[in-house]
């Protein structure tokens, strides 16, 4: 039982990271009806930029308080990746908005390959290792379950970001405009909404959240590699499908659930099959319940 709770805590930690990345997929899908394959790469670039700031620039030595230093890293990297996200949309997706459905898909795949290899050429193909103890190594032991400060911070940060996004989308005028765009671009335009700006906004928020998730992975696992965007991206996408794509709370629930499934599966079934679990869930969900757990949108049938 103790082991179960430990796995649960581990699963929620990694699940909240999946959820943050999944939000980027689900928002883009909600508004543009396309899968932004390059989103995982933006997530990966987030952690590489953080690595550059922390290790190559040595930001943590310049700034006395580690927490302030980390905060600067998070904000700065999120801004950079958001800019990259907007650039990506401008160059690779916007020219294709009125073309067939195959075109943006291929273009997104191309962008993903391009970004991944660009990072490989710049940083090399091996693993990069984050320094130890960027977050103080404090652990609490509650009923035999080991909970570190790192995990608490990850959970807290991602849950509050998700809550903020939820409020933004549900309670503000901007959020109403986003929801309008997700229903119908032309009608939204008739209502005086600048659709291009809303799309740009989605490509700011999504990549920024992804970048934050990327930094957290760097801090938590400490090892980063240029292929990680693909691995996490596909899982996050599974999370988005699990919750119902296009549905923001769905992505959060899906991410947390997937994280828990995966760690419990790896703990109780077999670690070697851990990667297969998420793909199996993905396929089963699409076959059995394509709308996802909380989904309103139906996976296109006709």
């Amino acid at each position: 039982m103790q082991q179960f709770f430990q796995q649960l805590v581990n699963g929620l930690t990694i699940g909240s990271i999946y959820a943050l990345v999944a939000l980027g997929y689900t928002m883009v899908y909600g508004i543009l009806k396309m899968i932004n394959f390059a989103h995982g790469e933006l997530f990966m670039i987030g952690s590489f930029l953080a690595f550059t700031l922390i290790v190559s620039v040595g930001l943590m030595n310049i700034i006395p308080s580690p927490m302030v230093g980390l905060l600067i890293v998070f904000l700065f990297v999120a801004c950079l990746v958001a800019i990259l996200g907007v650039l990506l949309e401008r160059t690779a997706y916007r020219p294709l908005r009125r073309s067939t459905r195959l075109a943006p898909l291929v273009s997104a795949l191309g962008a993903s390959i391009f970004l991944q290899n660009a990072i490989m050429l710049i940083y090399g193909g091996g693993y990069l290792v984050f320094p130890e103890n960027l977050v103080p190594n404090i652990n609490w032991n509650i009923g035999g379950v080991n909970i570190g400060l790192m995990r608490v911070l990850i959970l807290f940060l991602s849950l509050s970001l998700m809550a903020a996004l939820y409020l933004l989308v549900q309670k503000t005028r901007l959020g109403a405009a986003m929801r309008a765009c997700s229903l119908d671009h032309d009608t939204a335009r008739l209502m005086g909404i600048n659709v291009d700006r809303i799309i740009a906004l989605v490509f700011i928020i999504g990549p920024a959240l992804g970048a934050i998730a990327g930094i957290m992975v760097g801090l938590y696992y400490r090892q980063i590699n240029f292929t990680m965007g693909w691995a996490y991206g596909l899982r996050a996408f599974t999370a988005a499908i699990l919750g119902g794509i296009g549905n923001i709370p769905g992505a959060m629930v899906g991410g947390l659930l997937l994280g828990v499934f995966e760690t419990i599966g790896a703990g109780y079934v077999s670690a070697a099959w851990k990667d297969a679990i998420s793909f199996l869930i993905l396929i089963l969900i699409l076959i059995l319940r394509p709308t996802g757990l909380l989904g309103e949108r139906v996976a296109e049938k006709v």
Binding site: M34, A272, D275, L282
Partner: peptide, 28 residues
């Protein structure tokens, strides 16, 4: 057989998942 009713991006994702499952199986 079970995924033919899916279209476009969804089919693409399912086939990616299937490909990965096969590769993981071969590895294990």
């Amino acid at each position: 057989r079970p995924i033919l009713h899916l279209r476009g991006d969804y089919l693409c994702i399912v086939t990616i998942g299937f490909g990965e499952i096969v590769r993981i199986t071969l590895n294990n």
